[in-house]
């Protein structure tokens, strides 16, 4: 059986497709746990130098400067000491700010937070972009994610929208990302799925509304898109790649090639529908607010076989309407 999606074919979804996972709860487990050391009698926290006098705000800026530093915790500590936080240049010893513990010095201890900060955000991006991660491989994806995190730290209390910035980041020219154009297309597709997942459900146009229309009214109709649909055009066949990845067919990165996909939610299932060029043209014109008559006229100007295409497009309307792509009709 061919698993390659055909234009107009709806693909995958369902409750088990739970790619929107928990964002922040516990500290990520260290990838390589520290060497076990035998603990004897617990000792009180060690303060070996007079505490540095600093305001709460300065302490927090110093701490965050280390934890969020893109390089190592050592580099973060050095940068925080030299940074804009008043008084911390005097903190020649980190122990004047942070305590050592029974088994770890202050640097190792704040290193737990430095590791967790980066691991959590990389994990968040990996949740939203599993196919991009597959395409790039773990190491390159992690490098990309960390570069993005350094350039665009989260500024929201919520991580649900954080991954959206990665799409723009990948699209920026001169960015050093292998197969950047393909990765940007793939990231766009995966992010559209996240957006559609979180979009508010709203009433959609029923097929009954189409059935009662007289033929002469069709040309004047405008089809307002649903909030739970995204129409995407790509320079690579990324939907086919994503589908192959989900079916564990170990896809190879494809050559450039035009493709278009509608991502939409029907009920609470996310669907992806590949579109042929005429279908994408008509949908794009409708979503831009043109009447159906104008959209079909434009199609006829561009395609020699347009007369044959129009019946196919009209058949698609039933599928698009049943899929909830339209919110309402306007005349």
């Amino acid at each position: 059986m061919s698993t390659r999606p055909r234009p107009g074919e709806a693909l995958v979804g369902g409750l088990a497709d739970a790619f929107a996972t928990e964002r922040a709860s516990a500290s990520p487990a260290p990838r390589r746990p520290a060497r076990r050391r035998r603990i004897t009698a617990p000792a009180p926290a060690l303060v070996t130098a007079a505490p540095l006098s600093a305001s709460l705000a300065d302490l927090q800026r110093f701490f965050a400067g280390i934890v969020m530093h893109p390089d190592s915790v050592n580099a973060g500590t050095a940068a925080a000491r030299c940074g804009a936080v008043r008084g911390f240049a005097e903190a020649a010893r980190l122990e004047r700010v942070l305590t050592s513990g029974p088994q770890q010095d202050a640097l190792e201890r704040i290193g737990v937070y430095h590791y967790a900060y980066h691991a959590r955000l990389v994990e968040c991006l990996a949740d939203d972009f599993p196919t991009v991660r597959h395409a790039l491989g773990e190491t390159v994806f992690s490098r990309l994610a960390r570069a993005f995190i350094a350039a665009h730290p989260s500024r929201s209390a919520n991580l649900n929208s954080y991954g959206g910035g990665l799409v723009t980041y990948c699209r920026a020219p001169r960015r050093s990302i292998p197969r950047r154009a393909f990765v940007a297309d793939l990231a766009t597709l995966e992010w559209a799925m996240v957006e559609v997942l979180h979009a508010a459900a709203a009433p959609t146009l029923s097929t009954d509304a189409l059935r009662t229309l007289s033929p002469e009214r069709w040309a004047r109709l405008r089809f307002r898109p649903s909030a739970t649909v995204r129409l995407l055009r790509f320079d690579h066949p990324v939907n086919a790649y994503l589908q192959a990845f989900r079916e564990e067919r170990a896809p190879r990165i494809p050559r450039p090639g035009w493709s278009a996909t509608a991502v939409y939610r029907q009920g609470f299932t996310i669907w992806r529908m590949d579109l042929s060029p005429p279908m994408a043209e008509v949908l794009a014109a409708l979503f831009a607010g043109k009447t159906l008559g104008d959209a079909l006229a434009a199609l006829q100007r561009r395609h020699a076989d347009a007369e044959a295409l129009v019946p196919m497009i009209m058949r698609c309307f039933r599928e698009w309407t049943e899929g909830g792509l339209f919110a309402a009709l306007e005349e």
Partner: peptide, 10 residues
């Protein structure tokens, strides 16, 4: 702090 969120419990 300073508008940047670590999403960790510091």
């Amino acid at each position: 702090v300073a508008g940047r969120n670590s999403h960790d419990l510091l």
